[in-house]
Design a protein around this nucleic acid. Structure first.
Lengths: 236, 236
DNA sequence: AGCGCTAAGATTGTCAACATAACATGAATT
DNA sequence: AATTCATGTTATGTTGACAATCTTAGCGCT
């Protein structure tokens, strides 16, 4: 069994930490509507903590780019925007491309085997949809694939910027768009792993960039097909 | 005269904001030693503010990656590490490469002319070192060059990640290494602008990536020549 | 001498109250 | 009727005090 660790867990030692994790999950899973203003007194009472701790948690959420704060006005959950989603894909293309290039050289054989196993598991899940394999699981598997390669780059700063700063945004949009993981994407993953197994960093980067670009186009096409009404729901 | 805006200014409306700007400057310019632990009571008294505001400012510094915090232990200024500097160059290669590609298509003719002017001004400053053009100015001009292209990408998230999250780290290292801006780098800038004037995004990306990679190699070579003693000074 | 334990000191996390700025309501005026 | 201004209310920024945790110095023990 492969561990799904889309949201890398860490033990919340302080109240503000726990609050941060709770709020992040609530935002990512849509419990708190996109674009909604955060009322400090309301949330503080709701979670039974003081405003000080809440403000610290909000500050951490700001780091994750999940809320924006304006002085003397307050904090808001970020709002849903197709333009921003496209921007994120462009950044992912550049950074994950570099991550794949580095990972092709830096990952150990064991790590590559793990990645290959992940791919096989994912492929099996796609082939046998009857085995109560939920959509979320397949999406988490996709995240796991990308995370493994990112971590494989062994570039600590790159890992932080992608896994902590950018992928919270990715999850924010992913949950609201609920994209289907396509067979095509699976084949792209396969090609990427093959290049990495050949230790071909140059090709791994090119293939990863192609994959992210293709995913962006699929997302855009999907968005154009969605009705305005559905998009409105996604925003909330 | 070309405006030097290495650190994009904004009006600090709240106390925590002003504190944040002050502390950031102090860290970037070496007034607060790298790796040093931040004492909340000490700094709060020194700046004449309460610990709450100081903690908020520290939280913002954490976003900029200039300090790291551990629960129940405290905050430390980041420490100087060659490995981290090399990691930053790798990220810049990927992201600024993408920025150059986008900017080649997105920048207006006027913006390109501004960039060209920046280059001319910089070239002139290099050619006439007698004109009391300090090293800092030339470095700021280099930052301006990169910032103009990054902003030219018109990708808001990319701009934020680079200008706010990554370039504070760049300044942190730059101040401590005090690198000389070489004639070679100037020529690389020239080639990048030429590609952008041709609206050749592909080439602009390749040239920018080459430029960042070359800068990284120059920095590494320079570091290898520096004695251990000098590096120890840089850390403080 | 070296190691582990204990208690004092200091530092960080948390809270509730105060000061100040933004927002909302309604009256007066053009 | 629409706009502007005044006023009250709410929310955010800020502060100082309290509680929990970590660090350190000192002591006893092996």
């Amino acid at each position: 069994m492969i561990a799904i660790q889309a949201l890398p867990p860490y033990e919340p030692v302080t109240i503000a930490d726990r609050l941060f994790l709770d709020l992040r999950r609530a935002i990512l899973e849509g419990e708190l509507s996109a674009g909604k203003k955060i009322s400090e007194p309301e949330l503080a009472q709701q979670y039974g903590v003081s405003r000080g701790s809440l403000r610290e948690a909000i500050s951490k959420l700001e780091n994750c780019n999940l809320v924006t704060r304006k002085p003397n006005i307050g904090a808001r959950i970020i709002s849903f925007s197709i333009e921003q989603l496209m921007e994120i894909y462009q950044i992912r293309e550049a950074m994950e491309g570099m991550a794949a290039r580095l990972a092709a050289h830096q990952m150990s054989d064991a790590e590559l085997q793990h990645l290959r196993g992940l791919l096989a598991w994912h492929k099996n899940a796609m082939a046998h949809p009857e085995k109560h394999v939920s959509t979320e699981y397949k999406q988490d598997a996709d995240l796991d694939f990308h995370f493994t390669i990112i971590r494989g780059s062994k570039n600590a700063r790159l890992i932080t910027m992608l896994c902590q700063d950018l992928y919270d945004l990715v999850r924010f949009y992913r949950f609201r768009l609920n994209p289907i993981f396509s067979e095509t994407a699976m084949q792209e993953h396969e090609l990427i792993v093959q290049a990495m197994e050949r230790r071909d960093g140059e090709m791994a980067e090119l293939l990863m960039r192609h994959h992210v670009r293709a995913s962006r186009d699929r997302a855009r096409k999907r968005l154009e097909m969605m009705s305005a009404e559905e998009l409105g729901q996604a925003a909330h």
